[in-house]
Design a protein around this nucleic acid. Sequence first.
DNA 1: ACGATTTGTGAACCGAGTTCATGGATTGTT
DNA 2: AACAATCCATGAACTCGGTTCACAAATCGT
Lengths: 240, 240
Amino acid sequence: MGTEDRKQRERQAREQLFIDKAHELIRTDGLLALQMSKLAAACEYATGTLYQHFASKEDLLAAVATRTTIQHAERFRRLPELPLGTRSQMLAIVLTDLDFATANPDHYRLMQYLLTEAVWAQISQERREALLTAAQPISDAVSGVVERAREKGDLPAAREISAEEMGLGPWALNQGMQSLANARGLLEAYDIGQPLDHLIRHFHALMTGWRWEPRVDPDEPSVVRAETERVRAVLQETFQ
Amino acid sequence: MGTEDRKQRERQAREQLFIDKAHELIRTDGLLALQMSKLAAACEYATGTLYQHFASKEDLLAAVATRTTIQHAERFRRLPELPLGTRSQMLAIVLTDLDFATANPDHYRLMQYLLTEAVWAQISQERREALLTAAQPISDAVSGVVERAREKGDLPAAREISAEEMGLGPWALNQGMQSLANARGLLEAYDIGQPLDHLIRHFHALMTGWRWEPRVDPDEPSVVRAETERVRAVLQETFQ
DNA sequence: ACGATTTGTGAACCGAGTTCATGGATTGTT
DNA sequence: AACAATCCATGAACTCGGTTCACAAATCGT
């Protein structure tokens, strides 16, 4: 059965090639410019071969997003080890997400595109699940921090709200700020600059509103900045 | 020149017809199913006629979104009259937005689609500005409430943050929750139900974190519910 | 060595947005 | 009122890109 294995490996390697190349093309030419025939040509395969791996273009895009999400999720696995209090760990999650978004602006746009109802419906059940599964560690990291915070008494065990639902707040805040920041012209039209800096202050307001200790006053810019620097330094050190 | 005026009116009426019909078709068959030729046929005009009004399909969609946004924005104009404290007025904004989103689920999906970088680029400068202008009263309402709250002393005049940037918090929270809630399967995968109920609690946490008086503890579900009911009742009464 | 089966190919297909040559209606002029 | 000039609605034709599929090549099993 050795040859069978080899064929499987080769097939998987080819799929990886398609995904890598697609990612590269998106990064250089943008999402809009990606064409199935161009991608196939760039990989030196026929167009039809692509369709032996992906049910549709959306499916391919979902695969690209899944691969990037897996890389992203990797960063959250060692999070509990960080020598930080639970609240600072939560900030570490937000900052990690923020930095990742800055480094991979296309990923957020792609996710936004894929999560559009009309597009989501075009993706095969299998790949949808793969994408959600890839993101699971991120959600787990958030829930985990909330749970540890409740255990340690940093965060009151709020009523009628699970750890996941608690994490939904910063998640939605993050997501919303990303999508507003990505809409060119939108925030500029309202004289709003540096939306991502404000995200951090609103994040602290949200956490403080839930009485997550030690409280950070969102209205003390110097304190907020110092805390950001401190957490960034720990992240830097841990992940080089 | 009376005939000239009449022609202008007729032209505008036709444009309105196109927009209305497009909205109707999107509502019944979904965004994905909208076809330029079908729309033209439904209006009993030739396909080419559409293109004398709209530069592209995206342009047409932007026009639909603009019209809906104008209707939506109308609701915010009388907001300062409401017999409510500033913090409750802010809640009124969130609830109004929430109710509108529930009643017009397509609008949020459409906006999400239009604000996608790739799509946004396809819309004519003119219509992009029209869409942003249409949304201006909403942003103004938010900034207005923040300013009144600061004047009345309900909200500390935070440092290094404008009224617009202050309003960005609830806006992003709202936007993010909408887009998460609209992604079928996403929240369900994490065992999260009723995201929009949680939005309100997180909203209170955010406001309380900024020390907006009178504070509402997000962790008192009965208090949160009562406040929601109270504000809803006032909205009901004012707008019938 | 040879037939059966699987896999890769890329030209053809198809659907939907967009364009444009055409003809009919409207306006302005004599 | 007749005619020329202009405007503009028309919808068939065009374009473009995702998807399919008949065919060929390669691999596998006997």
